[in-house]
């Protein structure tokens, strides 16, 4: 609520959040490069970037969802279900293409179910995706009976582990998509409608925007991206199982809101999300490689999220009193 009513009061410079996150990212990189030998080497950075791509692809969809003031908690579970479908189809037909297509289709269907419930029944996205969060994961577990499918061949796993002129293939896919999403958001009517819905849904509706249709396709897209992320995950680990993507939803939301997308909607962009993703990724790597402590990683990421948003509030907003 605050972010909307206060948006007009902010300094005329509208990139405060990206600046804050960018500076933080630089600080982390410098400190890490100083303390951890070889941290900044392009080779190791590129190699370890493969921890990032699934999150990054999910984050694109999540940015749009959060822009409209919604939320999608079911992306991790959608990944699990898509992975299981992939495994089932691959083992029964032996065709990787059919399996990949059905994996993407499953993601799309899961997203469409979310979108349908949200737009047709007018349910709150948090409620719907909280339910499907449990349901999709559960269906994946029940269907696969907890078994894992693996060994899809080295050709397939090299899709995620291999590189293309030194850049990992999923990274290339992500970059293309990120540019596409950024252009969509700033240069097409539909992209601008998303922000309008987030700002003031009623006004958007009255000005003739097909809010419900847009919302349906939005969640469907989020599901499709979860299917794609699942495909990359499966290729990276050469294993498809019902627990694929467990806990991803919160990490993705963390990255998106850290990147400056307002959780109440209406504000945010792809660049911010990209910076948020990188900040979390580099911080994780730094903590993990310097202190060797997984629990510390949790503490740092959690505090970083609060601190970054707090810092932004302090710098960019005038005090209300």
């Amino acid at each position: 609520m605050n972010s909307k009513s206060q948006a007009g009061n902010a300094f005329s410079f509208s990139w405060w959040h990206e600046t804050v996150i960018g500076v933080l990212l630089l600080v982390v990189l410098l400190v890490a490069g100083w303390l951890v030998p070889g941290f900044l080497k392009p080779h190791s950075q590129l190699l370890l970037s493969r921890h990032l791509w699934e999150f990054a692809i999910l984050a694109l969809g999540m940015t749009l969802v959060i822009l409209t003031g919604g939320i999608d908690l079911s992306v991790g579970s959608t990944m699990g279900l898509s992975a299981v479908v992939f495994g089932c189809v691959q083992t029964s037909t032996g065709s990787l293409v059919a399996a990949s297509l059905s994996c993407l289709a499953t993601g799309l269907c899961c997203g469409a179910v979310n979108g349908g419930l949200i737009s047709q029944l007018r349910l709150h996205p948090l409620i719907v995706t909280l339910a499907t969060f449990a349901a999709y994961r559960g269906i994946a577990e029940g269907w696969s009976q907890g078994n894992s499918y693996s060994r899809f061949g080295t050709n397939f796993s090299s899709l995620a582990r291999g590189s293309w002129f030194g850049v990992p293939l999923p990274g290339v896919i992500f970059c293309v998509m990120a540019i596409g999403f950024a252009v969509f958001l700033s240069n097409t009517p539909n992209g601008r409608f998303l922000k309008a819905i987030g700002h003031n849904e009623r006004a958007a509706k009255f000005s003739g925007i097909a809010v419900e249709r847009i919302r349906f396709w939005l969640y469907a897209t989020s599901g499709l991206l979860a299917g794609l992320a699942s495909l990359i995950y499966v290729a990276r680990f050469d294993t498809a199982k019902a627990d694929v993507g467990k806990g991803f939803e919160l990490d993705v939301i963390t990255a998106v809101v850290l990147g400056g997308t307002s959780i109440s909607g209406g504000r945010g962009n792809i660049l911010g999300t990209l910076l948020g993703l990188l900040l979390i990724h580099e911080t994780r790597l730094f903590v993990s490689r310097y202190w060797r402590s997984d629990e510390l990683q949790w503490i740092v990421i959690g505090s970083l999220l609060i601190l970054a948003v707090l810092a932004y509030q302090l710098i960019a907003r005038k005090p209300r009193s």
């Binding site: 919160l250 939301i253 809101v257 503490i299 990421i301 505090s303 999220l305 609060i306 509030q313 907003r317």
Partner: peptide, 14 residues
């Protein structure tokens, strides 16, 4: 004035 979902999400992990 940090949105509550962000504060509590941060605390959840921290």
């Amino acid at each position: 004035r940090v949105p509550s979902i962000i504060v509590t999400l941060g605390l959840l992990t921290a």
